[in-house]
Design a protein around this nucleic acid. Structure first.
Lengths: 241, 241
DNA sequence: TTAGTTACTCGCACGATGCGAATAAGGGGC
DNA sequence: GCCCCTTATTCGCATCGTGCGAGTAACTAA
């Protein structure tokens, strides 16, 4: 049998049905803490629970494209840093059927984060409390950024979020990923704040400064931050992340 | 409508059909070079081409379990280091239909690698030539470990293999993953050989030694390697990887 | 016992980093 | 204009990890 003949008779259902989704962790900073944007499920299953924005993968759609579409449709955002995180496929993770989910991590600068939380899409900013130090990993706790009440997520989304924090911590200091959490132009202090917030550790200022400048990823703009009542810091731009 | 009622009427085909597979990169060392075990496809599509061992994910099967099953059924191996790598889902990657593949990385100690290459399962050991330095990433070249002829892989399996090498290089020196390429007990020289082979760089012996011992992952066994015609090196065991 | 080979250790140089202190620069009050 | 307050930015030093050459130790074979 030729390959063409084989393809003509191929039965797509021979190996059982399953569905594929993407779930996107919308991560940003809020009040000096890591935070994520959550969506209240208004359909079954688990209607009324908080969850990561997600959606089914279209049959002719790249996984990256599906994640980008979710970002656009559910949060009205585009052009963000977006990377694949991990694929979650435990058989019982969704009661509908076998649903395998490719998790993505999206990083939002502070302005985009607060804007997305207010644009009427129903996205809830939730503070992420990371109880472990370094890159030990483990569960994280969530609470409403406004109210403070603890939140529980639908499905296995808490695991996804925890993995996102772990991955971000791991990549932060060797991979310019931190710039994705800052505006186009930023000060070294802001960059340090981002790192301290994600890592959950205070960092030494001169050492951090030196390390970042020695990396060669930063480009001074010549401009300085306005509106300060003290010496205005230089604004930098990211060159290579 | 209650959640139960919703689930009873849920249509699993509402979002289009696709299939999910796992593909496993069986990585080991051969003659001081990184190598992978490949399988000749004897069914369409791309019958006759070399490919990574893989299989469809069972409908009630964990992704990790599916990867373990592939390892067992196609290579007769179990108990190996196995980790999820990345999920490949470009729409045209398989001509049959939309097939999304979760790639796994399996690491084989040298003995398991040579044994699996000979146990009649038809696995071909292929040397991996990595043309890039450090963690730059990019395509890798494959050639038959016996003959030397260059090999081309089916589907996008070359991309998967290249990513596996990149990931392995990145994780090697901070994550005890190198021990998975060694037998239970090994000498420091063997460990250094593994690192040099994977990284593609010669390493300084005293520095490597000191670094590894300071990590605290190694435990001296008190025994020494036998059969040498010179001073026998101490055998170590891995404690914490 | 000696030669030969490899395991293992020492000592030093150098670069990266932690860290406190000194200096620079702007705004606001006077 | 001058002083004070606050933060930015730089300096100098101690410390640690690492690269590296050379030395010492241990074993086999002859």
């Amino acid at each position: 049998m030729s390959e063409d003949a084989f393809l003509a008779t191929y039965d797509p259902d021979a190996y059982g049905r399953l569905a594929l989704t993407v779930d996107v962790v919308l991560l940003g900073l809020r009040d000096g803490r890591p935070a994520a944007l959550l969506l209240k499920r208004d359909e079954h299953p688990q209607a009324g629970h908080w969850a990561l924005p997600g959606g089914f993968v279209g049959v002719a759609e790249t996984l990256d494209a599906a994640a980008g579409r979710v970002l656009r449709e559910k949060a009205g955002l585009s052009g963000l840093h977006l990377e694949q995180l991990y694929t979650f496929g435990a058989p019982g993770r969704d009661p509908r059927m076998r649903i395998v989910s490719v998790a993505y991590l999206a990083l939002l600068p502070e302005a985009a984060f607060t804007a997305a939380g207010r644009n009427g899409a129903g996205l809830l900013p939730a503070i992420i409390d990371v109880p472990w130090a370094g890159e030990a990993g483990g569960p994280v706790a969530l609470r409403d950024a406004a109210g403070g009440g603890p939140l529980t997520l639908a499905f296995d989304h808490a695991d996804i979020l925890a993995l996102a924090m772990l991955r971000l911590r791991g990549k932060l200091d060797y991979s310019g990923v931190g710039f994705a959490l800052l505006p186009e132009r930023f000060t070294l202090r802001q960059l340090q704040d981002v790192h301290e917030t994600i890592l959950g550790t205070p960092l030494n200022k001169p050492a951090f400064r030196r390390r970042m400048l020695d990396r060669g990823w930063l480009e001074p703009t010549g401009a300085r931050e306005a509106g300060t009542s003290f010496r205005p810091p230089e604004l930098y731009r990211c060159r290579k992340p």
